[in-house]
Design a binder for these strands. Structure first.
Lengths: 196, 196
DNA sequence: ATTAAAAACTAATAAGTGTTAGTTTTACAA
DNA sequence: TTGTAAAACTAACACTTATTAGTTTTTAAT
């Protein structure tokens, strides 16, 4: 009785991982049982272990998939020859797009990474720290070219990353604001402020 | 053997709640066991129940304490007769101060509210929604008086609240940026942007 | 010193956890 | 149609969970 039906280019493991993302997002990693996950997949719990190694392996897969996507995009952006403002704008827009198109995975990577165990926990934190450092360097470059105000670059990175993360909360209000307005207005707010 | 020693104006229940805040912040609500909490307090697990009703009651106390603090401050600010800019600035600064002085509780309220059970879950979400609405109204007022750009007020509220929440991540980097610079630069970034 | 309340303790319970072992069923190529 | 590998199943394990019951110890007022 092979109940798990993968889509065209998705393995059964992918299906499980995707359902796990949704459940981890809604209930949290610790509060999601393998029996619940199995039910979401349409299978008994032990059957999952024909496709995955463990529960924590699922969390690892989700977190590092997201981390790698962001790192890859940042590295690409660094190599383009555009102004610092444009680079930052591109990065902000990429974050917004990721939040909108891969919501569950990004949410889990943002909230449940603390349940990773070493060495994965350390790797994840190192990767994130490295990502932040590159962003700080970008802001510093923009300050040097006088594109940006001379505010503390780390505070700006913090402000930008956090604001973008806040799109988590936007999900519930989708109906009132179009994606276009949201993206443009958030970029405007973060680059130019709200004061006229 | 009365091991729990409350401070001057703190009941034993307060001590337990505070330790719970710290543990819930570090490990998450679901991953924190009553045995762990008891150990942190210096007592056996069942002894906790002489002072509290249940684990979930602790989460409720933490979440609503924080929610009420924010609501109270917002209501006070609404009643002052200053410009919209000043009101928003005051609110931003209050959020930053709360993040710095009541970090554990605020963190738990921000991250672990999903483990509340009804009717507390609904109450909490309603209170938060109401808070956001008041903020939106403040931004709208500022747009009407031409203090603010005409961007979507909900997006701005989202951006501000999320940016401030991001101070969670700042904890680790305390050494590099002073509280004063952090607060001022974040306010500047959120009000005036980063572009010169 | 006696007493009553408060708060600690030990022991236990019922439910839920991730996971393994062993077995049966399914899917598919020959 | 048969044989084989993949993947499902049931049963079970060892452990942890929040919480209750019942008992003993501590605290503090008389």
């Amino acid at each position: 009785m092979a109940k798990i039906k993968p889509g065209k280019n998705a393995t059964k493991r992918d299906v499980i991982t995707q359902k796990a993302s949704t459940l981890f997002k809604i209930k949290g990693y610790s509060s999601t049982s393998m029996r619940e996950l199995a039910e979401a997949v349409g299978v008994e719990a032990p059957s999952l272990y024909n496709h995955i190694g463990s529960k924590s392996e699922l969390l690892q897969a989700i977190c590092f998939k997201v981390a790698n996507d962001f790192t890859t995009h940042l590295d690409m952006t660094e190599d383009t020859s555009v102004s610092a403002v444009t680079k930052i704008e591109n990065i902000i827009r990429f974050h917004i797009q990721m939040m909108l198109t891969n919501f569950d995975e990004v949410f889990v990577a943002n909230h449940e990474w603390k349940h990773l165990r070493d060495p994965y926990l350390s790797n994840f934190l190192n990767q994130r720290r490295s990502y932040e450092k590159k962003l700080v360097a970008l802001i510093e470059a923009g300050i040097k070219t006088k594109e940006f105000k001379t505010i503390n670059p780390y505070v700006s990175v913090l402000t930008i990353l956090s604001a973008v993360r806040g799109l988590e909360f936007w999900q519930r209000h989708k109906q009132n604001v179009s994606i276009r307005v949201l993206e443009d207005d958030m970029v405007t707010h973060l680059l130019k402020g709200i004061i006229k």
